[in-house]
Write a protein that binds this DNA or RNA. Sequence first.
DNA 1: TCCTTATATACGGATATCCATATATGCGTG
DNA 2: CACGCATATATGGATATCCGTATATAAGGA
Lengths: 111, 111
Amino acid sequence: MRDPETFFRALSDPTRLRCLLLLMAEGRLCVCEFVHALDLSQPRVSRHLGHLRDLGIVLDERRGQWVHYRLHPALPQWAHDVLEAAFQAEGLRDIRQRLASMPDRPSAACD
Amino acid sequence: MRDPETFFRALSDPTRLRCLLLLMAEGRLCVCEFVHALDLSQPRVSRHLGHLRDLGIVLDERRGQWVHYRLHPALPQWAHDVLEAAFQAEGLRDIRQRLASMPDRPSAACD
DNA sequence: TCCTTATATACGGATATCCATATATGCGTG
DNA sequence: CACGCATATATGGATATCCGTATATAAGGA
């Protein structure tokens, strides 16, 4: 992650912000879990995750037919602090509940 | 300040981000001081400050022919935390130096 | 190999953002 | 009132962003 303003622009989209806050809460998720939790189209989620990957904010890892995403381990402390502050402000309750109600979650299966 | 993503969008522009970090450091500044410190055109600075005002992020106060800006007192804690984290990440040294070298600063004069 | 599922990308259009330039407003002074 | 300085806004064009739809790629299983 380069400069703060690029990071803030990444967080200025509701899809991307929710993806990142979900990752903070859950640690690691695959695309179909984002799609279910956020109730958005697959291309939309995939495009935004790809954007976050290109910026070095998240890291992807293929496991069989699934691709798992997590926060990039090299994310600087100030970026973590920003995400933490956003997490305070954002509800996120209903979204995490919808994720929990997803049947046959791939992340739960493997490890 | 309503939601985090609107706040992040406001911070995603370099002009606005620098204005806010300058306000964090200096407390209160008038438009011509921003113009001098950031070396940008007056309409550009004024437009971005107006944007921040409309969002409830800063507060303006006319003092004679000058208009002073400061962070909005009602800014929630999480927004302060975000600005604090950005302040850590951003250098800002040269900019504050350029401000300090400004002759006849209006903010210093009155109060 | 064929089919299914999961994920990624390409395309085109609608909308938003940002800027420079020009002009308007507001205040203080003579 | 006329002028000068500080600040705000309007206009138009260039560029970026975001989306839905359609399609491409990749892996696993029959």
